[in-house]
Amino acid sequence: EVPFKVVAQFPYKSDYEDDLNFEKDQEIIVTSVEDAEWYFGEYQDSNGDVIEGIFPKSFVAVQG
């Protein structure tokens, strides 16, 4: 069931425009499960802007 919160276990950096880049310990709200390997989610950056994109499930852990 979406949405749910995950926390980055590792930093994720990608050159693909659709990917969500983040640092370790970033909290991310997952709004869609793309497939067995990928989530789609969002978070607010330090400027208060909402950043969204896809990212690999293996880089995050589900909270709770």
Score class of each variant (00 low, 15 high):
residue 1 E to W: 12
residue 2 V to E: 03
residue 2 V to F: 09
residue 2 V to S: 04
residue 3 P to R: 08
residue 3 P to S: 05
residue 3 P to K: 06
residue 3 P to H: 06
residue 4 F to G: 02
residue 4 F to P: 02
residue 4 F to C: 08
residue 4 F to S: 02
residue 4 F to M: 04
residue 4 F to Y: 04
residue 5 K to W: 12
residue 5 K to S: 08
residue 5 K to P: 05
residue 6 V to Y: 00
residue 6 V to D: 02
residue 6 V to L: 00
residue 7 V to R: 09
residue 7 V to I: 13
residue 7 V to N: 04
residue 7 V to L: 06
residue 8 A to D: 01
residue 8 A to K: 00
residue 8 A to R: 00
residue 9 Q to R: 14
residue 9 Q to I: 15
residue 9 Q to E: 06
residue 9 Q to F: 08
residue 10 F to I: 09
residue 10 F to C: 15
residue 10 F to R: 13
residue 11 P to R: 08
residue 11 P to F: 05
residue 11 P to L: 04
residue 11 P to T: 11
residue 11 P to E: 10
residue 12 Y to N: 04
residue 12 Y to D: 03
residue 12 Y to A: 07
residue 12 Y to E: 02
residue 12 Y to I: 03
residue 12 Y to R: 08
residue 13 K to T: 09
residue 13 K to V: 10
residue 13 K to G: 05
residue 13 K to H: 14
residue 13 K to N: 12
residue 13 K to Y: 14
residue 14 S to M: 02
residue 14 S to H: 02
residue 15 D to K: 11
residue 15 D to C: 15
residue 15 D to R: 09
residue 15 D to F: 09
residue 16 Y to C: 15
residue 16 Y to R: 15
residue 17 E to R: 11
residue 17 E to K: 13
residue 17 E to I: 12
residue 17 E to M: 11
residue 17 E to S: 10
residue 17 E to L: 11
residue 17 E to T: 11
residue 17 E to Q: 12
residue 18 D to M: 14
residue 18 D to R: 15
residue 18 D to P: 10
residue 19 D to N: 14
residue 19 D to C: 15
residue 19 D to W: 07
residue 20 L to C: 04
residue 20 L to D: 01
residue 20 L to G: 01
residue 20 L to N: 00
residue 20 L to K: 02
residue 20 L to E: 02
residue 21 N to D: 05
residue 21 N to G: 05
residue 22 F to M: 03
residue 23 E to M: 07
residue 24 K to F: 05
residue 24 K to S: 06
residue 24 K to R: 09
residue 25 D to W: 11
residue 25 D to H: 10
residue 25 D to A: 07
residue 25 D to M: 07
residue 26 Q to P: 01
residue 26 Q to D: 02
residue 27 E to N: 05
residue 27 E to F: 05
residue 27 E to Y: 06
residue 28 I to S: 00
residue 29 I to T: 14
residue 29 I to R: 06
residue 29 I to N: 07
residue 30 V to Y: 02
residue 30 V to L: 03
residue 31 T to L: 10
residue 31 T to E: 01
residue 31 T to C: 08
residue 32 S to F: 09
residue 32 S to M: 09
residue 33 V to N: 09
residue 33 V to L: 07
residue 33 V to C: 08
residue 34 E to P: 15
residue 34 E to W: 15
residue 34 E to V: 15
residue 35 D to M: 07
residue 35 D to L: 07
residue 35 D to R: 08
residue 35 D to C: 13
residue 35 D to V: 06
residue 35 D to W: 07
residue 36 A to Y: 09
residue 36 A to T: 11
residue 36 A to S: 12
residue 36 A to M: 08
residue 37 E to C: 15
residue 37 E to H: 12
residue 37 E to A: 08
residue 38 W to F: 11
residue 39 Y to M: 03
residue 40 F to I: 06
residue 40 F to E: 01
residue 40 F to D: 00
residue 40 F to A: 06
residue 40 F to N: 03
residue 41 G to W: 02
residue 41 G to S: 02
residue 41 G to F: 06
residue 41 G to H: 01
residue 41 G to N: 00
residue 41 G to L: 04
residue 42 E to I: 09
residue 42 E to P: 00
residue 42 E to Q: 14
residue 42 E to D: 03
residue 43 Y to R: 02
residue 43 Y to F: 08
residue 43 Y to L: 05
residue 44 Q to A: 11
residue 44 Q to F: 09
residue 44 Q to H: 10
residue 45 D to S: 10
residue 45 D to C: 10
residue 45 D to N: 11
residue 45 D to Q: 08
residue 46 S to A: 13
residue 46 S to D: 11
residue 46 S to N: 10
residue 46 S to F: 08
residue 47 N to K: 09
residue 48 G to N: 05
residue 48 G to H: 04
residue 48 G to F: 04
residue 48 G to E: 03
residue 48 G to Q: 02
residue 49 D to F: 12
residue 50 V to G: 03
residue 50 V to I: 14
residue 50 V to F: 09
residue 50 V to K: 13
residue 51 I to W: 13
residue 52 E to W: 09
residue 52 E to C: 15
residue 52 E to T: 15
residue 53 G to V: 04
residue 53 G to M: 02
residue 54 I to M: 14
residue 54 I to W: 15
residue 55 F to D: 02
residue 55 F to W: 02
residue 56 P to W: 05
residue 56 P to H: 06
residue 57 K to P: 07
residue 57 K to H: 05
residue 58 S to M: 08
residue 58 S to D: 11
residue 59 F to E: 05
residue 59 F to Y: 13
residue 60 V to A: 04
residue 60 V to F: 05
residue 60 V to I: 04
residue 61 A to I: 13
residue 61 A to H: 10
residue 62 V to K: 11
residue 62 V to Y: 12
residue 62 V to Q: 10
residue 63 Q to Y: 12
residue 63 Q to R: 09
residue 63 Q to P: 12
residue 63 Q to D: 10
residue 63 Q to M: 14
residue 63 Q to H: 10
residue 63 Q to N: 09
residue 64 G to Q: 12
residue 64 G to D: 12
residue 64 G to C: 13
